[in-house]
């Protein structure tokens, strides 16, 4: 069965590593994998999207609109921007904290993501809001945000990857010195 996952955020938040971990975990199970990444100019603080498709007989590396089993959003507005990819009853995992674009600061706009979260609550039945800042603080590193969000997606049961499979992927694919903090993030989210 094909599982479609879309990861979205702002350049520099760590979406690419997260998509690689899902792909790796699926390949460990002998599944076919296709992904597509944003690389280039947009990585400089622009919107980035990773498409991850696992299962069999997948043609396009980009998932069609209305087909995502899970959207993992590193930022509230980016979840809203990509919501048309979500299938009916799909899962959305979203980080609570807004990343303010320079344009917002310049125009004096007070964008803080709250309006985006309210919108998501109104249209997504299966929504999990993650307080990434709090988890990062507890784990002692801002770099565990992607793992925290992945763990929540695995916990939802819709990612096609279990929490145990995620832990195994972390141990195999991430340098050992970062294992503890990342596994701690998984525990906080799924424990």
């Amino acid at each position: 069965m094909t599982k479609n996952c879309l990861l979205c955020g702002v350049g520099g938040q760590g979406t690419v590593l997260a998509s690689k971990l899902i792909a790796f975990a699926a390949m460990e199970k002998g599944e076919q994998v296709r992904t597509s990444e944003t690389i280039g100019m947009s990585q400089r603080g622009g919107c980035v999207v990773s498409h991850v498709r696992t299962g069999d007989n997948i043609q396009s590396p980009m998932l069609p609109k209305g087909s995502a089993d899970v959207i993992i959003a590193f930022e509230p507005a980016e979840a809203v921007r990509n919501i048309s990819y979500l299938k009916n009853d799909g899962v959305v995992i979203v980080n609570k904290k807004a990343v303010k674009p320079v344009t917002a600061s310049l125009s004096g706009s007070d964008y803080d993501g709250r309006e985006m979260l309210d919108y998501l609550k109104s249209v997504v039945k299966n929504l999990t809001v993650i307080d990434g800042d709090e988890i990062c603080e507890k784990c002692g590193s801002p770099k565990v945000l992607n793992i925290a969000l992945l763990a929540a997606a695995a916990k939802s049961g819709e990612l096609g990857i279990t929490v145990e499979e995620l832990k195994s992927a972390i141990k195999k694919r991430i340098p050992q010195k970062f294992h503890d903090m990342n596994l701690k993030a998984v525990e906080i989210v799924t424990g």
């Binding site: 100019m41 990585q43 400089r44 622009g46 507005a77 921007r81 303010k100 344009t103 919108y119």
Partner: peptide, 20 residues
Amino acid sequence: AAENGAPKAPELPVRPPVLC
């Protein structure tokens, strides 16, 4: 053809690439 029936989203922040 595909259709998309999600309710209208709030105005999204523009996020052009910027110098780091």
